[in-house]
Design a protein around this nucleic acid. Structure first.
Lengths: 233, 233
DNA sequence: GTGGGATCTTTCCTATAGGATGCTTGCCTG
DNA sequence: CAGGCAAGCATCCTATAGGAAAGATCCCAC
C-alpha cells in the first residue's frame, strides 16, 4: 500500500499544511487507494506524507464529520466501509428529494446566463483522451458531479447545495463501477434536465431529474453482484 | 468572558478528551457563551478548559465541519456570525423540505410502539421547575428538538435524520429569542403532527409538519427587530 | 489438549517547545 | 498633518517526546 501512495503526495502545498493533508487524504479515500473498511494508522500515514501526526489528526477529524472515516474511541480511525444495499437505497432516496427540489428551484430562479451555462454543461462529454478503464470512469464521474453541482449552485440555496455535495462524497463509497456503454444515456438525461430548466418549468425539471436519478440507480445496481464480498455487518 | 466559562467545564469526562472538549465547546457556542462572530483563541481556550491545545484544535476542526465555527487560513478560528434574514429563510426552506418528508415517512413506516412514543412526546410540556427566562427557553428548545429528532428516527433514514440534526445546530445560531406566551401553540401543532402519524396518513403528516414549521418561522421573525445590529456583511 | 492469565508490543492520546507568519503600533518622512 | 514603513508582539502552526490503554501472543496449569 505504501508504494501506491508514495509519489502522489504533496500536490500543491496550499496555505496551510492541514488543508493540504485534508485534500490529499480525501483523494486517497475517494479513489480507494485507501481501501474501504481498513484501519488507518496515523503515524504511518504521517510518515508517508512526510508531515507530523498533528495535521493528520486534524484532517482525519474533519473527514470524520464528512463521513469518509470513522473513529472508534480507543482503537483509531478506519475508512468507512462500502455502502450496503440498504444504505445505497437510502442515499438515492435522499438524492431524489434534494436534487428534485434543486432542479425545480433552478428552473424557477435561473438567469438567462445560468440557463446557458447548464445547457452547455449538459452537452459536455468525456473526451477520448481520458483513456480507458479507471481513468475514463474518474473523468465521467467528475463531469456528472459538476453538472449536478452547477444546478445546485443556480438553485440559490447554500444549505441545499452543501447537502447535495455531502451526499456526493458518500456516493464515492460505492464500488468503483460503471458500465461505460451507458454513458450516452446519462448525457441524454442531462440534456432533458437542462431543457426543462431552460424552459423555466419547475415541475418538468423535477420530473426529469427524478427520472435521471432513478435510471442512474438502476445502472449502478449490478455493482452489488460484481464483488461477492459485501460490507462487514 | 473567561469568568463565564469557568465553572461549567469538564462535565463528565468521556472516553476521550477530544470528545469531551468537542461537546463542551459546542455547548459554549450553542448558548452564546462564546458570542457569535468572535475570535476564538486556541491557547486561551485550552488554558480555560485545562487541557493542551491539541485536543482543542481537533475539536475545532470538527466544529468547522458542523458549521459552528469558521477557520480563516492564517488568522485563526471565529464563531459563525448570526443568521442573516436570507440565511434564516433558507434554513426554514430546507426544514420544510426535509422534515416534511420525515413526517411522511414516519406516518408510513412507524410501528405501533413508535406511534405511541411520538404521541407521548407531543404531550410533553416544560415543567414549572424550569424557572424563567433563559432556563425556560433552553428547556423548551431541547423539548422541541427531541420531538423533531424522534420523528426523524422513526422515519427510518439515517441520512435524513443526520441532515435534520445538522440543520438544528444552525438554528441555534439564531438569536436566542422566543416568546414564551406562544409555547402552547407549539404543543398543539406537535399534537396535530403526532395525530396524523398515528393515523398513518403521510400526506396529512406532511401538511401538519409544514404548517408547524411555517408558524414557527413566523414566531421567530420578531427576533430580527429585537436587536438593531445585524450580522456583519 | 484446552482454557485462562499475564506479559509484551503496538498504537493512540496528550503535552510541551520552537519556528514562522500576520497584525498592530509607533515613528519617520514628505 | 497624512501616508508609508519598520519593528515588536501575539497567535497560529508544526514537530517531537512521554504516558496510557487495548489487543495479541505466549506460557502455564488443569
Amino acid at each position: 500500500m505504501t508504494e501506491t501512495i508514495r509519489g502522489r503526495i504533496r500536490p500543491a502545498r496550499r496555505l496551510t499544511l492541514t488543508e493540504d493533508v485534508y485534500e490529499t487524504i480525501k483523494g486517497l479515500v475517494m479513489d480507494h487507494t485507501l481501501p474501504p473498511n481498513e484501519r488507518v494508522n496515523i503515524d504511518a500515514l504521517a510518515r508517508e506524507l512526510d508531515v507530523s501526526p498533528t495535521p493528520v489528526r486534524e484532517a482525519l477529524a474533519r473527514l470524520e464529520s464528512d463521513g469518509l472515516v470513522r473513529k472508534r474511541p480507543l482503537s483509531g480511525y478506519t475508512t468507512t466501509p462500502l455502502l450496503s444495499r440498504a444504505e445505497f437505497d437510502d442515499l438515492f432516496d435522499m438524492r431524489l428529494l434534494l436534487e428534485g427540489d434543486s432542479a425545480a428551484r433552478a428552473a424557477a430562479n435561473a438567469s438567462t446566463a445560468n440557463r446557458q451555462r447548464i445547457s452547455t454543461e449538459a452537452d459536455a462529454t468525456v473526451g477520448v483522451e481520458a483513456g480507458d478503464g479507471y481513468r475514463r470512469h474518474a473523468a465521467f464521474t467528475a463531469l456528472d458531479a459538476k453538472f449536478h453541482d452547477l444546478i445546485a449552485e443556480v438553485a440559490g440555496s447554500a444549505l441545499l447545495r452543501e447537502a447535495i455535495t455531502r451526499l456526493h462524497s458518500h456516493l464515492h463509497l460505492h464500488r468503483l463501477y460503471f458500465p461505460a456503454a451507458q454513458a450516452a444515456d446519462t448525457t441524454v438525461e442531462h440534456q432533458r434536465i437542462a431543457a426543462a430548466i431552460t424552459l423555466g418549468d419547475p415541475e418538468a425539471a423535477t420530473a426529469a431529474m427524478r427520472d435521471h436519478l432513478t435510471a442512474a440507480r438502476l445502472r449502478h445496481l449490478p455493482a452489488f453482484d460484481q464483488m461477492p464480498s459485501g460490507p462487514a455487518a
